[in-house]
């Protein structure tokens, strides 16, 4: 069944989009990530213009994050104060990102920049995760007890000024890295259409040493608002949010997410991480190939802004 997308201005198949949403939702529920990093490239592969894929991806991320946050709120695994500071940074980063987005779009380098960011970030994160999880899998196979990070171990981040206490995370840390991390994620959110969970989660664990149990809930909490802000700014400055497209993805996504979460409970942590790493790398490689392979058309047209 075809449907005409009012903003993307093309006809697409409803079932393809629902299935796409469900598949990504399933994976995001399984791995505890928003799924924006999968949705946006998939939409681009499905010939949705990148600018619309990014803005709509940000909109879709809200739905899956709300779904996830609700269950974390119930379990109390959410640090509102930490989330709030991250969010303040996120708004700043996102605002900057929107300007860069509009600027690159005018230059005609937006698509390239989006692809490069995806390849570099997904490649790095996927690669690191794969190495880490394969090591963990080997360690368990050889019977050795996993090496736990010593608590109280401090790095340079903990020596910065302007410290603030985050009770739910049992953390006493400078606000500078928290704001900076939020801003970085906000920037990526507006340019890549992702929530940024796949960077936020490892950064909170390894850089800020936030306890793992509050990490996902807190990251999802701040992602809701950062992506809401990104969606709003894209809607007002670029008019690139397609609600029909977003709704189809969300409808499939929220259904898939709940089943994915259940499936995720049956797999062990390191197996799950290894699978996610492979998935992330696959998307990165697919996007990288497009950068290097000679395109079928060297010329492209776009609306010009003569002012």
């Amino acid at each position: 069944m075809g449907i005409y997308l009012p903003i993307a201005e093309i006809s697409v198949n409803v079932f393809v989009l629902l299935a796409m949403g469900a598949a990504v939702g399933f994976l995001s529920g399984m791995f505890g990530v928003g799924g924006g990093f999968l949705i946006t490239p998939l939409l681009i592969f499905y010939n949705i213009p990148p600018a619309i894929a990014v803005a709509t991806g940000a909109n879709q991320v809200i739905a899956s994050s709300v779904s996830g946050v609700l269950s974390h709120m119930k379990r109390g695994t959410l640090d509102f104060k930490l989330g709030g500071v991250l969010l303040a940074g996120g708004i700043i980063g996102s605002t900057g990102g929107i300007y860069v987005f509009a600027f690159l779009r005018r230059l005609g380098q937006l698509d390239l920049f989006i692809s490069l960011l995806y390849v570099v970030l997904l490649g790095t994160v996927g690669g690191l995760m794969l190495v880490e999880s394969v090591n963990a899998l080997r360690a368990t196979r050889s019977g050795a007890a996993p090496v736990l990070k010593k608590s109280g171990q401090h790095n340079w981040i903990h020596r910065l000024p302007l410290k603030m206490r985050f009770r739910a995370s049992k953390l006493f840390v400078s606000v500078i890295p928290v704001l900076g991390l939020g801003a970085g994620i906000g920037f990526l959110s507006s340019i890549m259409g992702v929530g940024g969970g796949f960077i936020m989660v490892p950064a909170l664990i390894y850089l800020l040493k936030v306890p793992t149990n509050v990490v996902i809930g807190t990251s999802l909490f701040q992602i809701i608002f950062t992506s809401a802000y990104t969606t709003l700014v894209h809607a007002t400055t670029n008019q690139t949010v397609d609600v029909v497209l977003a709704f189809l993805l969300m409808a499939g996504g929220v259904a898939g997410a709940q089943y994915g979460a259940k499936a995720g409970q049956r797999l062990r942590g390191e197996q799950l991480r290894a699978l996610l790493a492979l998935l992330v790398l696959a998307v990165a490689i697919r996007l990288a190939i497009d950068l290097f392979v000679t395109p079928p058309n060297l010329y492209s047209l776009s609306a010009a802004d003569l002012n």
Binding site: A63, T231, K262
Partner: peptide, 18 residues
């Protein structure tokens, strides 16, 4: 668009919760 996403997320949780 934001409200729709939040509502869908909430409904999805209520309907499909596992």
């Amino acid at each position: 668009a934001i409200s729709l996403a939040m509502l869908t997320g909430w409904l999805g949780r209520v309907i499909f919760r596992k």
